[in-house]
């Protein structure tokens, strides 16, 4: 059990935070993330549970996280990396984790992040005919959009 944690600690250029005995955060640079994922997969972290993005608008960054899980060690490793908000480009992980393919499609649609090497990114996935900025970004105002595009029903007696 201890062995794998030590191995994770030795990953190149990674900042390790052990939040709980079975939950480890690994923060890496953007360039290292594919290599880190690959080494983690070799260690036995076979399952990519979720890959998604947090919009850190104050820092001008997108935080991309990969939640990995290992059947053997029963540990969750969460790999995090940051890219610039102005020019968000990441590299695809679908050669390592096949399920990343669809997560990346979702990310690229919802956040407008370009994923290099994933040919399906950029095609419409969940949304259809979307013309505004990518909706999951923090500067997209959902309430404003919906009141501009849809008409609300007002019940009788309500002040308009």
């Amino acid at each position: 059990m201890m062995g794998v944690v030590d191995k994770i600690k030795e990953l190149d250029g990674a900042k390790i935070t052990i939040q709980r005995e079975n939950r480890i955060f690994v923060d890496v640079d953007k360039d290292r993330v594919i290599g880190t994922l690959y080494s983690l997969k070799l260690m036995g972290f076979h399952q990519l549970s979720v890959q998604n993005v947090v919009d850190r608008i104050k820092d001008g960054k997108f935080e991309i996280f990969y939640v990995l899980y290992s059947h053997e060690y029963k540990i969750n490793v969460i790999v995090r990396t940051w890219v610039d908000r102005d020019n968000p480009v990441i590299e695809t992980a679908d050669k390592i984790y096949p399920s990343a393919h669809t997560w990346e499609r979702e990310i690229s649609e919802m956040f407008g992040i370009k994923v290099e090497g994933n040919e399906d990114c950029g095609k419409p996935f969940i949304l259809e005919n979307w013309k505004d900025i990518p909706p999951m970004r923090k500067d997209f105002d959902s309430v404003k959009y919906s009141s501009e595009h849809f008409v609300f029903r007002h019940s009788e007696g309500e002040n308009e």
């Binding site: 309430v143 919906s146 595009h149 849809f150 609300f152 029903r153």
Partner: peptide, 18 residues
């Protein structure tokens, strides 16, 4: 009828009868 809990969602229409 009126969007229900998704009143602020950008994807869901309010008022079917329009």
């Amino acid at each position: 009828l009126n969007g229900g809990v998704y009143w602020d969602s950008y994807a869901v229409i309010k008022q079917l009868d329009r």
